[in-house]
Design a protein around this nucleic acid. Structure first.
Length: 216
DNA sequence: ACATTAAGTGATT
DNA sequence: AATCACTTAATGT
């Protein structure tokens, strides 16, 4: 199968919102399939964004860092069928990335050069809709993250976090240390350990070294 | 066997 | 809920 045909097939499967034939053609024309291994940094703070990614498979963790080193806040995960909303603004305004994106699994995506991203906004309605929709989605998600932090306790946040992670990886077993989770949620490791222990006791979760399995 | 890293616990603020 | 000061358990060399 040619690369072009493959992209078109993938578009059809993963991005049904992108309906216009001509647009599909163009994406196949200029899009590049890129692959990242688990743990690889796809984009880092300060780097210029020159591609907008359409994620085909795998999952990506999006974080934001504060001035003081070491403090990282998890914003959200990206999965197959998603795109990075941040990259739109970043690349259209020619700004440096304010976020870091790391592949959590082996991840495959279609990279679209900045130039066309801009052009297509006016040219294709379904592209514009796609961009707007993903904006809207992520915005809502971010708002949710914010009020979780502001108004709800750690237990609710944990719940969401675990859910998002399992959804992201498609497995009910999560491989991560308590410390990693603590960093993602910006809480102490002990708090994570204690909460997970509680969840294990009420039977919603099973713990192992470097491993958490959701039972419900 | 020994060192290292992850996880559990209690006390203190 | 954070931090500290351990202890215990699992793993790597």
């Amino acid at each position: 199968m040619t690369a072009k045909a493959e992209i078109q097939k993938i578009l059809h499967q993963r991005f049904p919102q992108i309906a216009e034939k001509a647009l599909q053609e163009e994406i196949a024309q200029v899009g590049k399939i890129m692959e990242f291994k688990a743990g690889e940094i796809i984009m880092d703070y300060g780097s210029y964004v020159r591609m907008v990614p359409l994620i085909i498979e795998g999952s990506i963790k999006v974080t934001r860092e504060d001035e003081e080193v070491g403090k990282e806040l998890l914003l959200y995960f990206l999965n197959a069928g998603d795109t990075c909303s941040m990259s739109f603004t970043c690349c259209m305004m020619d700004k440096k990335s304010a976020i870091r994106t790391v592949a959590m699994d082996d991840t495959k995506l279609i990279g679209i050069p900045v130039k066309q991203v801009d052009n297509w906004m006016g040219k294709y309605q379904s592209w514009k809709n796609f961009v707007m929709m993903s904006y809207d989605n992520k915005m809502l998600e971010l708002v949710k993250v914010i009020d979780k932090i502001a108004f709800h306790g750690l237990d609710k946040r944990m719940e969401e976090y675990l859910k998002a992670l399992t959804q992201s990886t498609g497995s009910t077993t999560i491989t991560a240390t308590h410390q990693t989770i603590a960093d993602d949620l910006n809480v102490s490791r002990e708090a994570v350990s204690r909460l997970l222990k509680k969840l294990e006791n009420i039977g919603t979760v099973k713990l192992g070294r470097n491993e958490i399995t959701l039972l419900t």
